[in-house]
Nucleic acid binder design. Structure first.
Length: 577
RNA sequence: CGGGGCGUAGCGCAGCCUGGUAGCGCACCGGUUUUGGGAACCGGGUGUCGGAGGUUCAAAUCCUCUCGCCCCGACCA
């Protein structure tokens, strides 16, 4: 490719709208442009990277025996009503109507569509197992699209669905995909970690997320510093100490009300009373779908909504409105809720408040708290569950080792679905005995654009992107310092042609620009290998090869350039597979 | 959905308070000189001042509505 014909428009200034580095660099390197919030155009350079990633995904999926299909983006509402997700999915689902007022949605994921296909086609156990995948544009009307390709409303995703005869088969499919994902991300040059995760809107029994560790990541990961345990904090648990409840204690003090005017946050109350926040029990009034719950949690801990959601089997958790709070705890009591004398609602508590005594709670009265409250004496002992977000140094649920919290970008997610969709849509087969059985499913997604963004988050420096060789838009940049100089121009042309015929992916910067401009652009674009052809080295009949990642420069004779570059490129391809 | 901010040339921004010829830097186009890390000079403005309505002799500027975008929050009891 000739730079002059490649439609690459680089930008010096950092675009105001871009916050994270991958977004900034993709805009600056002329790889993407925004059309609307969370909606991007891929320019030729960026699209080459997308295609590289897709290529790796295809190879590995095919290697694992999966078959590529192409499902419709436009899905009829009936299918979604059949699975129950039409009402469950909420405003994230892009809904639309055709001219006959028939309801459709733009697929945010394709369980319904694929299951519909399979239930029509699959009759016999002989047709199973089956793994179908596609690389397709998805639509999710995110509340807040941000970070460029990281969280878009329209995005490219690889999604695969496995169909097995039974759980044992599904387990094998799942493990195979887990290994395949590890290969895919390794080949893309990413340092990735598989962590346990909540199954969210997709559902199912078990899942892993593939996380690229990066400070800019939107997810938090708890991982054990001693064993292999790693989990999204949404799901992460910790080792809960077994302890007999204390029924009465000599250390219990008399409960009494304290005036705490205008002090409703845990911080304020704790410092006013001169106790630590861990001595305060906060009472959150929560709406789990229609049901009102009082959730008790220690002042220094956070409620994990996902855990509460799973406990209550609710589809949506939200904080109760002030009106609702007052109807439970009395007038003007918002900010002063507590378990003492509370009635009419289910009370659940986190383990963090199980073993404390003489604690502080709201008094269900304006500007008042109780101190020295104790379970059983002052209020009924509630049911205890694990409801809090794990924190740094909590004991690992597997080995008690200290947990560490880090940030990650979710680039892939695999689910054991079980029969959630196959049951709802009646996808069945006949087994050896002629008995009708429900197909057991799994589903497996990879965010293609997000993988591209994550790669930049992990591979860049002050000057720009540093593509890992397997997903670089071009492998080699040929850079003549002065195209008005005949010798330089011809030498560069010759090398360019030679590399092309050797099968390398080469771009030559044939623009009549000053060398500095070309060097800057070449660094920004992140092409892994650069060959500089300039008058100095040309006099010794040699050229300069520079590695983008290390900055290492070697001089080689012109005649040996092709061989050397070919060797470097294949080494750099090897390194990540 | 709540709070805040911003829409002026392709990009980054000033001008708005206090109404009166639409501006700066970069980019872009033409020319001359330059050519190993984002050149210099000369010439060129490429604009629906987000949109609609209103006030006014006169609106980028004031008022109303509206659309779009960005950031924060949505863990507060």
């Amino acid at each position: 490719m000739r730079f002059s014909e490649a439609f690459i428009n680089t930008v010096k200034e950092v675009p105001a709208e871009a916050e994270v580095i991958s977004h900034q660099l993709m805009l600056r390197a002329g790889m993407i442009r925004k059309l609307a919030a969370g909606v991007y155009t891929y320019l030729p350079l960026g699209y080459r990277v997308i295609q590289k990633i897709e290529g790796i995904i295809r190879e590995e999926m095919n290697r694992a025996g999966a078959l590529e299909v192409h499902l419709p983006v436009l899905c009829p509402a009936e299918l979604w009503q059949e699975s129950g997700r039409w009402s469950l999915y909420g405003p994230e689902l892009m809904r639309l109507q055709d001219r006959h007022s028939r309801q459709f949605c733009l697929g945010p994921t394709h369980e319904e569509v694929i299951t519909d296909l399979v239930r029509r086609e699959v009759r016999s156990y002989r047709q199973l197992p089956l793994n179908l995948y596609q690389i397709q544009t998805k639509f999710r009307d995110e509340i807040r699209p941000r970070f460029g390709l990281m969280r878009g409303r329209e995005f490219i995703m690889k999604d695969a669905y496995s169909f097995d005869r039974d759980d044992a088969g599904a387990e094998i499919s799942y493990q195979k995909m887990k290994e395949t994902y590890e290969r895919i991300f390794r080949r893309c040059g990413l340092i990735c970690k598989a962590v346990e995760a909540d199954t969210g809107a997709i559902g199912g029994s078990f899942s892993h997320e593939f996380m690229v560790l990066a400070e800019s990541g939107e997810d938090r990961i708890a991982s054990c510093s001693r064993c292999e345990y790693a989990s999204n904090v949404e799901k992460a648990t910790y080792a809960i100490a077994d302890k007999e409840p204390v029924e009465n204690s000599t250390s219990w003090l008399a409960m009494q009300p304290v005036s705490t005017p205008e002090l409703s946050t845990v911080q304020e109350v704790a410092s006013f009373l001169g106790v630590s926040p861990s001595q305060v029990v906060k009472t959150l009034l929560v709406l789990a779908d229609e049901q009102i719950l009082a959730v008790l949690i220690r002042g220094d801990q956070e409620l994990n909504e996902v855990k509460l959601k799973n406990l209550t089997a609710a589809t949506k958790i939200s904080m109760a409105s002030p009106q609702v709070v007052e109807s439970i705890t009395g007038p003007e009591s918002v900010g002063f809720s507590g378990p003492v004398g509370l009635s009419g609602v289910r009370v659940v508590a986190d383990y963090s408040v199980r073993d404390i005594e003489n604690f502080v709670v709201g008094a269900n009265r304006k500007d008042t708290h109780f101190i020295n409250v104790n379970w059983g004496r002052d209020c009924p002992r509630p049911e205890f569950f694990d409801l809090r977000v794990v924190q740094e140094d909590d004991p690992c649920p597997r080995c008690q080792g200290p947990l560490k919290i880090s940030r990650g970008i979710e680039v892939g997610h695999i689910f054991k679905l079980g029969t959630k969709y196959s049951k709802a849509l009646q996808a069945t087969y006949l087994d050896q005995n002629g008995e009708e059985k429900t197909i057991v499913m799994g589903c497996y997604g990879i965010g293609v654009g997000r993988t591209m963004a994550a790669s930049i988050e992990q591979n860049h420096d002050r000057d720009g992107i540093i593509w890992p060789m397997p997903i670089a838009p071009y492998q080699v940049m040929v850079l003549p310092t002065d195209t008005t100089d005949k010798d330089i121009r011809e030498a560069a042309e010759a090398i360019y042609q030679e590399l092309l015929s050797a099968g390398l992916e080469v771009i030559i910067d044939d623009r009549e620009e000053r060398p500095g401009v070309k060097f800057k652009d070449s660094d920004l674009l992140g092409i892994p290998v650069r060959i500089t052809i300039g008058s100095k080295s040309l006099k010794q009949n040699s050229v300069e090869i520079r590695i983008r990642k290390t900055g290492q420069v070697i001089q080689v004779l012109k005649d040996q350039c092709r061989q050397k570059v070919q060797q470097m490129v294949s080494e750099m391809l090897e390194a990540s597979s």
